[in-house]
């Protein structure tokens, strides 16, 4: 059995959105290298609870890398040091005995801290609500293969749909830009025939909402792509820009009539 680890954590503690926060040091002792990062924090929190102290608040849900809830910046990198790995899928074998680990929340004006390491990512929901959907008049289901979709489009769409909305791209971006996330949603729908009717409306509405939420703008550093646990590519940002330029050049206001001659 491999050796257990003793670590020092420097954790951002902040009571609520209004209070100032500060870093507090905690020992994490006798940690199994097979634990996940969140299990390590569970152990530290149990110790805090036993001592009657307030446990460290952090976001988590599925703990299997698919829901996008876990967050936190670990030693200066969102989701920690491993590529394409969420915090919940990060294991303590990625650390060495005696390491010191700094834990901070996602830092962005658009993601206010709720408590400690937990931030409010409602801005992402509002961007989706602004245009990240298709309108489907429901009825009896269509034949499965009635809509031909080239395999490559389906693959590219699925690659973009892999985005779990965690916000690591915003956290990693020196400008706190949400363009990787927004462009993943736009590419996901834009590659499919179902996404076409609202394609131009979608890109304008989602970008307008993104701006209204006060995210920054992409300056093509590439930090988002490097931090993304799902391997979303910056090519999507270029596709979003392309759609936006086309949509802006060809925009016409909605009319009520039409089609009746």
């Amino acid at each position: 059995m491999s050796k257990h680890l003793n670590l020092t954590l420097h954790v951002w503690r902040q009571k609520n959105a209004k209070c100032d926060g500060k870093f507090v040091e905690y020992p994490a002792e006798n940690i199994s290298p097979d634990m996940s990062f969140l299990e390590m924090l569970d152990v530290v929190n149990e110790g805090l609870i036993r001592k009657g102290e307030e446990p460290i608040t952090f976001d988590h849900d599925c703990r299997e890398g698919i829901c996008g809830t876990c967050s936190m910046v670990i030693n200066g990198r969102p989701h920690g040091p491993r590529e394409r790995t969420t915090t919940c899928q990060l294991h303590m074998r990625s650390f060495k005995d005696g390491d010191s680990i700094t834990l901070e929340p996602w830092r962005a004006e658009a993601f206010p801290v709720i408590k400690d390491l937990m931030v409010d990512r409602g801005a992402f929901d509002r961007i989706i609500a602004a245009g990240g959907f298709i309108s489907v008049p429901t009825g009896s289901p269509q034949d499965a293969n009635a809509l031909p979709i080239p395999k490559q489009s389906a693959d590219l769409s699925m690659d973009a749909a892999a985005c779990i909305g965690c916000g690591a791209c915003v956290a990693a971006c020196p400008n706190a830009s949400a363009m990787l996330f927004v462009s993943a949603k736009i590419s996901h729908l834009g590659h499919l025939p179902q996404g076409q009717p609202e394609r131009h409306l979608r890109v304008r509405d989602m970008i307008a909402q993104m701006d209204a939420e006060e995210f920054g703008t992409c300056t093509n550093h590439g930090e988002c792509e490097a931090a993304c646990p799902k391997g979303i590519k910056m090519e999507n940002i270029a596709r979003m820009n392309r759609d936006f330029i086309k949509a802006s050049l060809t925009y016409r206001p909605a009319t009520s009539g039409g089609g009746v001659g």
Partner: peptide, 10 residues
Amino acid sequence: GYRNQKNVAS
């Protein structure tokens, strides 16, 4: 800002 942000791609 962050205490020590690690840039890896920029």
